[in-house]
Design a protein around this nucleic acid. Structure first.
Lengths: 266, 266
DNA sequence: GCGTTCTTGTCCATATTATGGACAAGACCG
DNA sequence: CGGTCTTGTCCATAATATGGACAAGAACGC
């Protein structure tokens, strides 16, 4: 249990285990590929996003292809998550605790608000949309689907999650995502500004959503130990979310977020 | 394109790419863990099944834990697939071509036969149950669930899939699974015997199923290029599958397997 | 056609990295 | 309280993954 007094920096309790650089790198590549969904990601983009050298990424990706973990689309040359990943995932058949806990809240908020609702979790330095409810109002924001993965900070859900964690942790994550923010036309400073604003407001908000002409409002959901695990988001065409309605929607979201937090404990 | 005349053995066209031993090993570990489902697998079992040394497996597994790919159950000390794997799998939201193609056949055969039906795919050296239909007969074999993963050769589905491929390939796979067969109380010779029998019969069969007192019948499903991709299985208590009924059930399964093969082409 | 600038793919000497034998420590049993 | 399980750790060393440099193909402009 006692570490041999490491001459190196006296960091944290959990010094990252060494002896598996290649495995960590392969996983970093996989997470970038996952963000590309079915269409996949070009090699050069993986190189940019991971900061690895091209020969290294190339080697990793092609070994993963041989293993069935990655696929290459012949037409486009892009790389994507292969079908062996869902196969491995079948080992964990049951839906997560959060998904079960959030279900009634999503249902309730969805009918009450009428616009599209998203449940988004944090996974590493990314946000991942894990559930979506389409409202009754005839104009709906449908461009974000279950499975959508983005760097933490580019969506209102990401901003909300960052706002709910210690400022230092948030800064670290945004800095780690620096290279990937360019693709979303934002940068570290802008994101951190939005995070601060969200912290003050009590919820995350984006006047200009990722989709043109939309606006989003997100509340965070914390685990019992106080760390944000997910966010609940409403997206709608901007005109439908004026200051008055924003307040109403935010209140509903905040109420349901607290209910979900209670349900997770159970 | 032209390989520099390798002084080594003039093997196949596709010499396995090198430079990623660690990644391949990590994946081998993951596949073993996947077979353990939610309960997971003790470290020693992973060591046995993969043939790697214990320090190596230990290191790999713990790096994967840090990365969120693997979880360790504190009570039992067993290792299992972590929740980041389903998260990565969400990148591929759509159900597979096979699952869609097989759906009507499973429906039809299930009502016609009345016993539990399984759809099982080959993934590497394993079989993986990807769909199940419960029949109407009051006694049903339910012990095999969607997500169940076993070495090719220990289930009737595995035997069927092996029977449908060139004998040499089948031998290679069974040999690769040698260490894992012990856990199912069988061995290379026994499995190869069953495969030969299945090849003669035209379908896979196990008088003594994995579950005590059950009997299983499986037909293989080939992809357009002639390689077996999946198997369709009926399991029932042994008394319900006498020689007469075995023949009937096998005919239905064979008929539906051919229909699925056509549907995959589409 | 031919340079320019993208992209992806490959080679191989080298230093960094993963390896596994040996040891340790805890759990369970009789 | 020795015997037989298990999991976890150390570290010298051999083997492995690395990345600079080069190549080849694709897309575009003129």
């Amino acid at each position: 249990m006692d570490k041999t007094a490491s001459a190196k920096s006296t960091r944290r309790i959990t010094e990252p285990r060494q002896g598996a650089q290649a495995i960590r790198r392969a996983l970093a590549v996989l997470r970038i590929l996952a963000a590309g969904r079915e269409d996949g990601v070009p090699l050069a983009e993986v190189v940019r996003a991971t900061g690895l050298t091209r020969p290294t990424v190339h080697r990793i990706v092609h070994v993963l292809i041989e293993e069935g973990i990655v696929e290459r689309h012949d037409k486009t040359g892009r790389y994507a998550i292969g079908n062996q990943v869902p196969e491995l995932a079948l080992a964990r058949a049951r839906p997560s605790r959060l998904l079960i806990a959030a279900n009634p809240s999503l249902q309730r908020a969805s009918t009450e608000i009428g616009d599209t609702l998203f449940l988004t979790v944090r996974t590493g330095n990314d946000t991942l949309c894990v559930d979506r409810r389409i409202g009754v109002y005839p104009i709906q924001v449908l461009s974000i689907e279950v499975g959508a993965r983005r760097p933490l900070g580019v969506s209102s859900a990401g901003v909300a999650i960052l706002a709910a964690m210690p400022a230092q942790d948030a800064r670290k994550i945004v800095a780690a995502n620096e290279k990937r923010l360019e693709a979303y036309r934002t940068d570290v400073a802008t994101v951190l500004g939005q995070v601060t604003a969200a912290r003050r407001l009590g919820y995350g908000m984006r006047e200009i959503g990722l989709v043109q002409g939309t606006k989003s409002i997100s509340t965070w959901i914390k685990t019992p130990d106080g760390r944000p695990a997910a966010a609940m988001t409403v997206s709608a065409v901007r005109t439908r979310l004026g200051p008055r309605r924003e307040q109403e929607v935010a209140e509903i979201l905040l109420r349901e977020a607290r209910i979900i937090e209670q349900a997770i404990r159970g």
